[in-house]
Design a protein around this nucleic acid. Structure first.
Lengths: 123, 123
DNA sequence: CAGAATCCTTCAAGATACTG
DNA sequence: CAGTATCTTGAAGGATTCTG
């Protein structure tokens, strides 16, 4: 009913610098993480949670709704019992895969030069 | 002395996914913006404020300190009166210029396809 | 000019309980 | 399973004042 969907810490909705607009969409605390996880393929709600352990269920739901509203992801509800909901990247969401990869790699090369952990439970 | 400098909304300091580590550094509300502005060259505190109108003086100071602590920018104080402080990207900061450019361009191509504003007061 | 220090308000987000 | 609904609070962040 659009009663004011929390709107976390968006800077502005008025068109400004393209970078600001990008950050309005990607700037959410968990959004890049969510998008990156989904970049590997469709995931159910519960699976997504497991891949981002630190996020609460409430936050995850909220961020997913915002990403959906911004056209970054697609939410598919299967009318089953128990319910099943799958999330995947939209075409727009897919368009920033290279960006997410670059973010990932920057952290790799610039922040983890040494200290390569044996397990790669995330990736 | 690392007494706990506010530490805004970092996810974790323990090494996790490279993307998480990257977001710990870049994830601040204004940080990508600051870094992008500095990517064009050294700026004084006041100049930086003018280029990010929505940020308060307090927030700008805070974010700059964090970026400095993370080795992304260099803060140079000139012992003059009135004081002058200049900020510029460190070598590490420079290393993510392509990333910032890509963020900027994604917003341009994906969010501003039509509706190209005549003035480009930001850029 | 470039902040530091206070005070104060809002709100992001955790915890918990409930539901189709 | 995948949420919604409430309640509560820590802290993000604004406004203002003071200073080297």
């Amino acid at each position: 009913m659009e009663t004011g969907p929390v709107k976390p810490w968006h800077l502005d909705r008025v068109p400004t610098c393209p970078l600001v607009m990008t950050l309005n969409i990607l700037g959410g605390k968990w959004k890049p993480l969510i998008l990156h996880r989904l970049a590997s393929g469709t995931l159910r709600f519960g699976e997504l949670r497991k891949r981002i352990p630190a996020v609460s269920q409430k936050m995850l739901t909220q961020q997913l709704r915002e990403l959906e509203a911004d056209g970054m992801i697609v939410r598919t509800v299967f009318p089953e019992i128990p319910p099943r909901v799958e999330y995947s990247l939209s075409s727009r969401g897919l368009s920033l895969r290279p960006l997410l990869d670059q973010l990932y790699r920057w952290g790799q090369t610039e922040l983890m030069s040494e200290e390569a952990p044996a397990d790669k439970s995330w990736s």
